[in-house]
Each structure stands twice: as structure tokens, then as C-alpha cells.
């Protein structure tokens, strides 16, 4: 469990990191928190010739709240910083709720928000949460900066819209709308294991008390984190009663095509999605009432 030889660079700025990435794009990997990359290297399942360690790039860390209440979080912000941030708790309660579900405290102390998103593990919590939040990812490359909506970012298994010479620098998250509720639920055999399935939900009610918008991010049920689009649109216009939650759950179970593994068959994952979507929608709806 020792990695093969690699060349190590520790740039001090984003510009420097991008220059290195431009030079070595196809052979290089960016080292953020290293919680997925380093084990993969130790197993020799990943063997990048060049490692660009951006842990020394201070400008990539930090949480800012804009005038409209939205958040901009640097890609290198540690997960435990996000977890304990009052700004995050205020503007994006869903993100705050989901953080403790990520692995274990030791891992969240090293792992970064951007690292998990860029790695795009289908079982990871953050990508599904970002989908449900309608987040936007800021990437920088040789041709400058661009913003990529979360629902255009995750392509397939460990694949994203980032070009090999592009780097994720920040994540923007809109402030939670009034009369909104959220929930995050997942099921794992032991807390901290890769979840067998999970759901992140955002619901917003209109002035008439019916659902104005809904977003359901699913994890661990396909090659990439995904939005349960049909389930979400079925909720719109309803009062989000239990029967509506059940209907959405049924639709969500129908719009996924999960795979099986040693821990859960495809059928079991489908069952989990049915149960978890129902629970998550009920909890999100109840959360709105709690807030008056």
C-alpha cells in the first residue's frame, strides 16, 4: 500500500496551480483533501505522474455571504469548517444537515467541499446535496473562469464537466427561499460507510400553501449523482401530504436504474429510494411548518 513514484508540486496561488495544470493536464491530479485520491494511489489504482497539491493556496478557502444572502464557498474549504459554519447554517440549512453524514470526523477534518464535488463519487453526499440546492460551480482554466450549474456538472462515474486543465475554485449556493424546507436522509450499514442510497430534498411552498418548487438529489443509485426530476415535478402544486410524498417516492424509484453490489442489490436500492424519498419529503414539509 505504497504509491508509485510521482512528481510533487505545491503551488502557492491559483494562477500557479493553473499554470502547472495547463502544462501537465493529462498526467496531473490535483491534491485537495486527499481522502479519496491518496488511498487510490496507495492501492495503486490511481497513479498520476504529477501531483499538484493546492493545500497551500489560501485564496481557495473561505466562506462568504453575499448581499442577497447567497454563499460563495472556496473549493478548498474543509468539510468540518462548512459543518460548523453559522453562515452555512443560516443560508443553506440542507448543506448544514448533510455534513455529519459524510464519513467520519477525521475525514471531514481533511476533506474539502470542492474535492468531494470534483471527485464525483456516486455515493458521496455533497454532489447530491449540491443538485438539490441548485448550486453553481466556478471553474478556472486557461480560457478564464466559467460557472457550471450543478445539474450540468456530473456526467458519469467519477466524471464531471471539468476539462483536464480546469480547476474547481468555488461553489455558489443560493440562499434558501422563504417558506422552504429541507431534509437529508441516507442509509448505510454503519454510519460513515458509503451509503447504499441517500436523498437530499429542498421544498418551497407558494403563498397558497402548495408546493412551488421541489428538488430531490439522489446518491448511490446511479453512475452519477442525479436529480429525481419526475418525482420533484409531481410534488409541485400539491400540498405535500403523505400521499404526495408516497407518489413522489414511487416516481423516484421508477426513474432510477441502480446497480447492485455485495452490499445491496439493485432491487434493494430501489426499495431504499422509495422509503427514503418518502421520509425526506415528509421531513422537509414538516420543517416548513416548524418555522411557521
Amino acid at each position: 500500500m505504497k504509491p508509485p513514484v510521482f512528481e510533487y508540486h505545491a503551488p502557492g496561488s491559483t494562477d500557479e496551480a493553473l499554470a502547472l495544470l495547463g502544462e501537465h493536464a493529462w498526467e496531473a491530479k490535483i491534491l485537495a483533501g486527499g481522502q479519496s485520491l491518496v488511498p487510490a494511489m496507495n492501492f495503486r489504482l490511481a497513479s498520476p505522474a504529477i501531483l499538484i497539491d493546492i493545500n497551500g493556496v489560501d485564496e481557495l478557502s473561505g466562506i462568504e455571504t453575499a448581499a442577497d444572502g447567497s454563499l460563495r464557498i472556496g473549493a478548498m474549504t474543509r468539510q468540518n469548517v462548512v459543518e460548523s459554519s453559522d453562515q452555512v447554517r443560516a443560508a443553506a440549512p440542507l448543506l448544514h444537515k448533510a455534513m455529519p453524514w459524510i464519513a467520519h470526523p477525521q475525514i471531514r477534518a481533511r476533506g474539502t467541499l470542492g474535492g468531494s464535488i470534483a471527485h464525483a463519487d456516486p455515493a458521496a453526499e455533497l454532489p447530491a446535496v449540491m443538485l438539490a440546492l441548485g448550486a453553481e460551480f466556478h471553474a478556472r482554466g486557461p480560457s478564464g473562469e466559467r460557472a457550471i450549474p450543478a445539474d450540468e456538472f456530473f456526467f458519469g462515474l467519477l466524471m464531471t464537466a471539468l476539462a483536464p486543465d480546469e480547476m474547481l475554485t468555488a461553489i455558489s449556493i443560493p440562499a434558501q427561499a422563504p417558506r422552504s424546507g429541507t431534509a437529508f436522509v441516507e442509509f448505510a450499514r454503519r454510519h460513515g460507510d458509503y451509503a447504499l442510497a441517500g436523498v437530499a430534498v429542498t421544498l418551497t411552498l407558494g403563498s397558497d400553501g402548495t408546493c412551488e418548487s421541489a428538488a430531490l438529489g439522489l446518491l448511490s443509485v446511479s453512475e452519477a449523482p442525479m436529480l429525481a426530476v419526475q418525482a420533484a415535478s409531481a410534488l409541485v402544486g400539491t400540498a405535500v401530504e403523505l400521499s404526495d410524498a408516497e407518489g413522489a417516492a414511487e416516481l423516484a424509484a421508477g426513474e432510477i436504474d441502480p446497480t447492485g453490489d455485495l452490499h445491496a442489490s439493485a432491487d434493494y436500492r430501489r426499495h431504499l429510494v422509495r422509503v427514503l424519498v418518502r421520509r425526506a419529503v415528509v421531513e422537509a414539509r414538516a420543517g416548513i411548518e416548524d418555522r411557521g
Partner: peptide, 10 residues
Amino acid sequence: SRYAAEDALE
């Protein structure tokens, strides 16, 4: 080193 020994395993 153990690193070199593991390199050689390949």
C-alpha cells in the same frame, strides 16, 4: 525501500 519493493511487484 518498501516503495521500491512494491514498484518491483508490478
